[in-house]
Write a protein that binds this DNA or RNA. Structure first.
Lengths: 321, 321
DNA sequence: CTGAAAGCGCTTACAG
DNA sequence: CTGAAAGCGCTTACAG
């Protein structure tokens, strides 16, 4: 466990009998060419000594840390977990590593984390706020930033999101197509476009709404309120898989069967939605694709823009199909 | 979105009319003291200019990157997700940021990720392998490493884990205490100490075993095999929450009720186990505590050691209590 | 209490 | 094709 002193470029150069520059040339295959024999000697030295270039030094010299920052509200949400994996993969493919931070859904902490990441010279920031953050943090950090999971255009910021209004409409219409006369809504603490879509699909008929946190516990409590009292709706559109998982648990406790007594359509379509009992019919967000676009945009993005990815209804069993 | 040139220490020094050294002294509150008036001027300059010390430069100079690496098999497992959050919090409290990488459970990729992290000058590595990795990677990286979720002592390596044999015994005995005559086992691809504990608790009576991947799909398929054919056990001990979630789904499909037809005790006790229907009785791994110990050990650890954290049976409803 | 200077390990123009 | 050297932005002995 005693740490051996780090092998530096100079060590390799000495061992191979060349200058440091040449070592750098072979490590990066450029920008100058090196004769095959010299290159072989250098590669040998690298292998024998176990040389690993010092990323801090390279970052300092080039001004490029090859680091991306990812800020998520929390990890124990399979949607964010999936996103973290996908972003990590895309970043890695472009030679970037990922520094992750979780904000716990707290705006002040989130801002703090972003500033911290900025200090670490990340070259891009991917941030997912439950509520779209003040785009000012973007300016404050002075680093290319893309906001993920944002449902509407935010002038001056690069945002990626799905057409959640459309998704909500699709989900609610699917429920309606089963002939259910009522469709409740379980949604986050603040109004968002999913609520709007739900209203439109219902042609503005009045139906029960419960607001709660975007997690299992929130969905659980909201469902207890919505279905524990008389006048419960025949079906419900839930604005995230996590809330839907909590909702399912509440319905089970209340002795209500899904979909026979209450039908559900959820929003997100993460792994969790596949393995509930019954599996959830869900409006799926294309996480992999969004991750790819986000990484490309944060690294190459020419300026603020709005990207809307299409959403797709994945029919499983909770809707009664 | 145009990137302003970075503000450096020299800029602050010039603005405040002091030397760079003084700026460093006030930023770090040491190691030399600075007069209150000068300090005030410097703090002003920092605020006005929006100075963020360049972490790469500091890392190069001090030889300390203040970075920790975390390698996980995947993120869409709430146990790992919980762990990532907990480790992030502990690291942050000690001024370290976290670079995360997921191995996808592939040993070669895992090794690769570790080497990559080593090149990034992380000062410690926390790695969780589904199967305990070759401790050689530790030597190869030349960086203090602690392996998490390891169930037995590995000489020469620092490992943290629970007494999983004891946990399995507790879980199975709890099932037995309900009077169930049979307790099946759903476990990972390779034998581990949980299987041993299960056998011991059953006093080596022969019972059904199904092996499968440590994920939802694995547990789903294993349960279909175990409960879809005659001679199914009255209860089952499942070696992870993810597998238990899949198992619950399979039982639902088979029309078997939990706990009336089949009782379940799971292993992990992550958030997911709280919100299934019914909630899972589980042998809980103390994730927060393990994260704390891991971070402390990787940063201060004097050498290889074995840490065993106690496990606790959390009784909920899937066992029939 | 403060400044001038060295040096961490790289990369890359500049000479040769 | 290769080497000597400058410089990225810090921190920290060393002088004063």
């Amino acid at each position: 466990m005693s740490r051996p002193p780090r092998v530096t470029q100079a060590d390799v150069a000495r061992y191979a009998g060349v200058s440091g520059a040449v070592v750098s040339y072979v490590v990066h295959a450029g920008p100058r060419s090196v004769s095959p024999e010299t290159a072989a000697k250098v590669r040998d030295a690298i292998r024998v000594l176990g040389y690993q270039p010092n990323a801090s030094a390279a970052a300092l010299r080039t001004g490029s840390s090859k680091l991306l920052g990812l800020v998520l509200p929390e990890f124990d949400n399979s949607l964010w977990a999936d996103l973290a994996v996908a972003v990590g993969r895309c970043a890695s493919a472009r030679g970037f590593a990922l520094i992750t931070a979780s904000s716990g859904g707290d705006a002040a902490l989130e801002r703090d984390q972003i500033l911290r990441l900025a200090g670490r010279q990340v070259e891009g920031l991917l941030v997912t706020s439950v509520e779209m953050t003040d785009p000012d943090v973007h300016g404050a950090a002075g680093i290319p930033t893309v906001f993920l999971n944002v449902f509407s255009d935010v002038p001056g910021a690069t945002t990626i999101g799905v057409d959640a209004r459309r998704g909500a409409i699709d989900g609610v219409e699917h429920l309606l197509s089963h002939g259910y006369d009522s469709v409740g809504l379980i949604i986050g603490p603040d109004a968002d476009v999913r609520e709007q879509g739900w209203r439109e699909a219902l042609e503005f008929r009045s139906m029960p709404v419960e607001r709660c946190a975007f997690d299992r516990q929130g969905g659980y409590e909201a469902a207890l309120r919505m279905f524990g009292s008389p006048g419960r709706p025949r079906s419900v559109f839930v604005s995230s898989d996590m809330q839907a998982v909590g909702c399912l648990r509440a319905l089970w406790e209340l002795g209500l069967r899904v979909p026979q007594d209450v039908a559900i359509v959820s929003f997100d379509g993460s792994v969790d939605s596949q393995f509930t009992a019954p599996p959830l019919t869900a409006v799926r967000q294309p996480i992999e694709r969004m991750a790819q676009v986000a990484v490309d945009l944060v690294l190459d993005g020419p300026g603020p823009r709005r990207v809307v990815e299409p959403v797709r209804l994945v029919v499983r069993e909770s809707c009664g199909c």
